[in-house]
Design a protein around this nucleic acid. Structure first.
Lengths: 191, 191
DNA sequence: AGCGGTATCGGACTACAGTCCGGTTGTGTC
DNA sequence: GACACAACCGGACTGTAGTCCGATACCGCT
């Protein structure tokens, strides 16, 4: 991510790493919801101002923590082997198979980091829809759908992948039923 | 709603009405997001403690404000004429038509009170899924669907009706495209 | 190495959601 | 009509997200 022209200062980079480590540790130990930003700042030995300037808000901190894994998934989607990625250009995979592969991979990612993703999508209204990841997933899905309005359908499909929704439903139903429902929806939309 | 055995005290009822009026007025004037609970309490001439004991939290206040209109919709669904309601028992309407009618009616309601509904669904994690209204809509939709797992499909469909989702998507696409996408989804799920 | 400009640092500060508890006011009972 | 008890009232209190700005430390240049 680091933008090119203005290189990151040494102390800033050091602090960023220290903060992320401390946050990861605290979240693992006490749960994401029970850790205040003050606690993160204190554990990192850093002032609150630093914390907020670097990460914007609590959701931004979560995004930064998820950044690496998210990019792994994005890379696999963009450049990896089929069916998740485009694979061999000579024999492109079936869009429906790619969609299934993506949904499976995303749900794996989501279930692994449910609390953190929920925090990244919570906060200022519409946070989820502004971050780059959402736009990325949306574009990807749009390109795989075939109905009269793939952009709208992609949003509808993504609605079912919202962390809060998945968490609430998975608590009531079995996670596998959530998975199957998402798949069924995708199938229905690829007619 | 008022439960039967312990009748509501006169001063409590009076305060409830005053608070709801003040809140509605403030929300209309300044927007839902810009009004603090302190402001509501002050405008109603009531202490904060009263406010929170009566309504639990900000989401609860929103639920109370929406309560009447919501119940109108619920009554129409339960007892009203077809296709929204069950209509004449001798000639029940087609489930797909009932589903369309419900989705249209719900989206009307939602677009009319978007901010308020969003506030009612925001707050403590999973707030949306705990309030009675969600369960009601979920049950209704479940009974109209016909796939292998109507309960899971109903959740997926409701995900696309979350206020935050609808608000974010409607800001980018046309509201009508949201409507059509929801309808398309419902059709796909009623095969 | 020394220096100026600038990004960063950090803790005090504000605003807001939500809690608590001593005082007060209805309500049912005798 | 008086009493006891419960429910209600309200404002002071706590904890947290997020802001601000003077002080500081880094970087590039000479």
């Amino acid at each position: 991510m680091r933008t090119s022209p203005p290189r990151e200062r040494a102390d800033a980079a050091r602090n960023r790493a220290v903060v992320l480590d401390a946050a990861a540790e605290l979240f693992r130990e006490h749960g994401v919801g029970a850790v205040s930003m003050d606690a993160v700042a204190a554990a990192a030995g850093v002032g609150k101002g630093t914390l907020f300037r670097r990460f914007g808000d609590k959701a931004g901190l979560a995004v930064a923590l998820l950044d690496e894994q998210e990019r792994v998934l994005q890379d696999a989607v963009l450049f990896g082997p089929a069916p998740l990625g485009p694979g061999d250009a000579a024999a492109p995979p079936d869009p429906r198979q790619r969609l299934h592969a993506f949904l499976d991979a995303y749900l794996d990612y989501l279930f692994d980091h449910l609390d953190l993703v929920r925090m990244s999508e919570t906060g200022s209204p519409g946070a989820r829809y502004r971050i780059g990841a959402y736009r990325f997933w949306h574009r990807h899905i749009s390109l795989l759908l075939a109905g009269p309005d793939p952009a709208a359908d992609a949003h509808a499909l993504l609605a079912g992948l919202a962390a809060e929704h998945v968490q609430a439903v998975a608590a009531e139903l079995d996670p596998d039923r959530v998975r199957r429902a998402v798949r069924r929806l995708a199938d229905a939309l690829t007619t």
